[in-house]
Design a protein around this nucleic acid. Structure first.
Lengths: 238, 238
DNA sequence: CAGTGGTCTAGACCACGGC
DNA sequence: CCGTGGTCTAGACCACTGG
């Protein structure tokens, strides 16, 4: 692990332990540089990292402060870990519904930027909160077989992203996310144990590897009664 | 404007002009440093800035590349400019509904972290696409009067954030955003010209100044037929 | 193994917040 | 006007990609 990353993790741990509460002012850059026996620039990097992830904010001329905690039981919309992190936040499980190999349909080709003869692994699964008592979401994913060789059912019923990263060694880079609300279709309503026409939150995600290749297009259909998402912006945005 | 920012803007302009198309490989860091007559580190800053804003991605050992364009007619969920930017993307207008001064109700106190006797400016407005033919959203905003002295109706009918920044000189920092889908209430359905029980996308936003003070809590109620949002993640996320 | 992005240093100087 | 974050430099060295 890199120096600035380990410093960031060290500070983050203190924030999460609530040793450093909301609003707390961190040591100054110079003090931290002294403390960690490194240069000021490296501290700047560490704090930038924490700022970009929404844990602190920095005010020129004043100091660096711990940012407020996010609401509990909300899912991070921009986490690049798919289902992986939500597993930790609240106990949840997945049920395998369907898996097939297909040629990329037109709307998937557009998102994944592939030719019509490229093979796609299509997977459908349902995510539950707790012990399959409450449905959280229905997930329809298209993976490029060229990059994601195969996904066993065991991975589908636990965490596909954990499998992709840990077993296949694919490194996740960045993603595009699109959002809308709509009325539930008959098929989706049935799987989510809701009524046709009920509201639904639809999230489309296109994931890319670290080298910029799109490898996964997923449509997430969220149960409106159970689904709460959050995101954070930092100081620099358009 | 800072050196690394002006370099970033310069490159961004070429991307937006499509002089640098999707997938295009930028010059190397050293070449750019030479080109702009600056140090490599400053170029690193400039490209980091573009990467964080989702315009490029960088691959160690390989190069820096122009990222794909976002879909048109989607609103940036994490823009810190409120309504300001969407004004440019597609013509839209606002209609003033209500404005009152009140003491902060409990749920607003919690979000804005204020005492119960602090004065709040409450504003309700409707946003339309085009010439008030299609409703886009209903906006319910709570501003701390301590920070936002007053908001004239003219600002409400154009852009409140433009007024806050340009006239009041308040600098926008970061924000927290929460999302869910729900069924439309009678009051909201009436204003949005939709039916009670129709789906709705609800976005709650808490905006902070650059110095970390929360100043605005807004609940956005989006017409599901017209509202499409997007967000982007960069390589570093949890 | 060449080419390219990323980290780290040490230090100068700048810009802003708040007393 | 002091204290604090932010920028910028020049250069050494490291780590990854891809032929």
């Amino acid at each position: 692990m890199l120096l600035y990353e380990s410093i960031a993790e060290n500070i983050l741990e203190m924030i999460n332990n609530e040793k450093l509460p909301h609003g707390y002012q961190l040591e100054t850059l110079e003090e931290l540089a002294e403390h960690y026996q490194t240069s000021k620039n490296t501290i700047v990097r560490a704090l930038e990292n924490l700022e970009a992830r929404g844990f602190i904010y920095q005010v020129r001329g004043s100091g660096s402060f711990v940012r407020r905690k996010k609401r509990n039981y909300h899912l991070n919309l921009l986490s690049n870990q798919g289902y992986r992190n939500s597993l930790r936040k609240f106990s949840s499980t997945s049920k395998f519904v369907k898996k097939e190999i297909m040629m990329a349909p037109e709307y998937v080709r557009r998102e994944l930027d592939v030719e019509s003869d490229e093979k796609i692994i299509y997977i459908e699964r349902i995510r539950y909160i707790g012990n399959q008592s409450r449905t959280l979401s229905l997930e329809k994913s298209y993976y490029r077989q060229k990059i994601i060789k195969d996904i066993p059912v065991e991975a589908i019923e636990s965490s596909i992203f954990a499998y992709i990263q840990d077993e296949l060694g694919v490194e996740i880079g960045f993603s595009d996310v699109y959002l809308k609300a709509d009325k539930l279709s008959k098929y989706d309503a049935n799987l989510l144990e809701l009524d046709v026409g009920d509201p639904v939150l639809i999230v489309e995600e296109v994931y890319h590897t670290k080298t910029g290749e799109p490898f996964d297009y997923t449509e997430l259909v969220y149960n409106y009664q159970e689904s709460f998402l959050y995101a954070q912006s930092s100081t620099y945005q358009d």
